[in-house]
């Protein structure tokens, strides 16, 4: 089946050239005199590139801003944030800004002496040290020279893994660790990529949907959707099974689960395209709604269905 569509026509820019246009929500804020209260951390304010934020005499410019004519001006579209006298703009479309303790999903790009380089959608590749992974033979085991020689048996180029941000190097690159049974190599599923800003910090980033699908919401915007693994089937601390942890072999996955994985992937794609932040509740609701309406996996992506679907999702939250 082949369908042809047209590109959406560009917005008409006939009126309002003379003055800057703002989103209705911020129109009043902009019209008001800029004072200190407005930049309070409580209320969020959106900017467009070129919007003047405040006077540069009272405030310092931070990331996403520049100074011109003694005014601090936003250089990106995003939300204004202020710490004391420092004004920054957090961009909406940006790479992932790591913080210690974040859960990320990454892909190995390079194997180097005693370390792996991991693509985690950040500005630089992350580093996973050989000393920060669990190796077969127990947690307390010392790393031997032979381990360094067979690093590719643990992770090789292209492998996906889930890890936690442990620390930062002096150049700003993040260091990851997988020293927990929850972390490690990923299999039995597929990856979906969304803008990192859409993943909220949650109590748990491991979500199990009732359709037999596990989700790992990486804070870097990489989302792993896989077949559900039962708690007690996970590799235990004592019988740390190297073959299972570092295996490249998929389990048997039945068609229903594969369909569910595809469906969840499409739901996430549609929500991301409509810029809806992902949480565990919205995903659960979305999946139930799609099942109730008996929408096919492919149909979710169609324009009318997706608009209808997102309207139903965002409406029910209010």
């Amino acid at each position: 089946m082949i369908t042809f569509t047209s590109f959406p026509s560009p917005p008409q820019t006939t009126a309002g050239h003379g003055r800057t246009k703002h989103h209705p929500a911020v129109e009043e804020d902009v019209a008001m005199d800029l004072d200190e209260d407005e930049l309070s951390p409580g209320g969020s304010r959106l900017t467009c590139p070129g919007d003047s934020i405040t006077s540069s005499q009272a405030f310092m410019r931070g990331h996403g801003t520049y100074v011109e004519n003694e005014e601090v001006i936003a250089s990106v579209a995003g939300t204004v944030e202020r710490v004391n006298k420092l004004v920054t703009v957090r961009a909406i479309r940006t790479r992932y800004n790591p913080e210690v303790g974040d859960l990320v999903v990454g892909r190995i790009t390079e194997v180097q002496p005693r370390r792996w380089k991991v693509d985690a959608n950040s500005r630089q590749d992350a580093v996973l040290m050989l000393s920060s992974v669990n190796l077969p033979g127990g947690v307390q085991r010392r790393k031997l020279e032979s381990d360094e020689l067979q690093m590719r048996t643990f992770f090789e180029e292209g492998d996906l893994l889930v890890a936690e941000v442990q620390a930062f190097f002096s150049d700003g690159a993040m260091s990851l660790h997988t020293r927990s049974l929850k972390y490690g190599k990923l299999r039995n599923g597929q990856l979906v990529t969304i803008p990192p800003i859409l993943v909220r910090r949650l109590k748990s980033h491991f979500i199990t949907l009732p359709c037999g699908v596990d989700l790992i919401l990486g804070l870097n915007g990489y989302i792993w959707i896989s077949k559900h693994v039962k708690e007690n089937d996970q590799e235990g601390e004592e019988g740390f099974d190297a073959e299972a942890v570092y295996s490249n072999q998929n389990d048997d996955i039945d068609d229903a689960t594969r369909n569910a994985i595809s469906r969840v992937a499409n739901i996430i794609r549609v929500l991301a395209a409509h810029f809806v932040p992902l949480t565990d509740t919205i995903l659960l609701e979305a999946y139930e709604w799609v099942m109730d309406q008996e929408i096919g996996t492919r149909e979710i992506l169609l324009e009318e269905t997706s608009d209808f679907f997102v309207a139903a999702m965002t409406g029910s939250r209010d």
């Binding site: 089946m1 369908t3 569509t5 047209s6 594969r258 499409n266 996996t297 492919r298 979710i300």
Partner: peptide, 20 residues
């Protein structure tokens, strides 16, 4: 597998929408 399943739910012979 039978029936075949693709990552985005298309059938084997489906094209994605083409904008032109």
């Amino acid at each position: 597998s039978t029936p075949p399943i693709r990552g985005d739910g298309r059938s084997l012979l489906d094209y994605r929408p083409i904008a032109l």
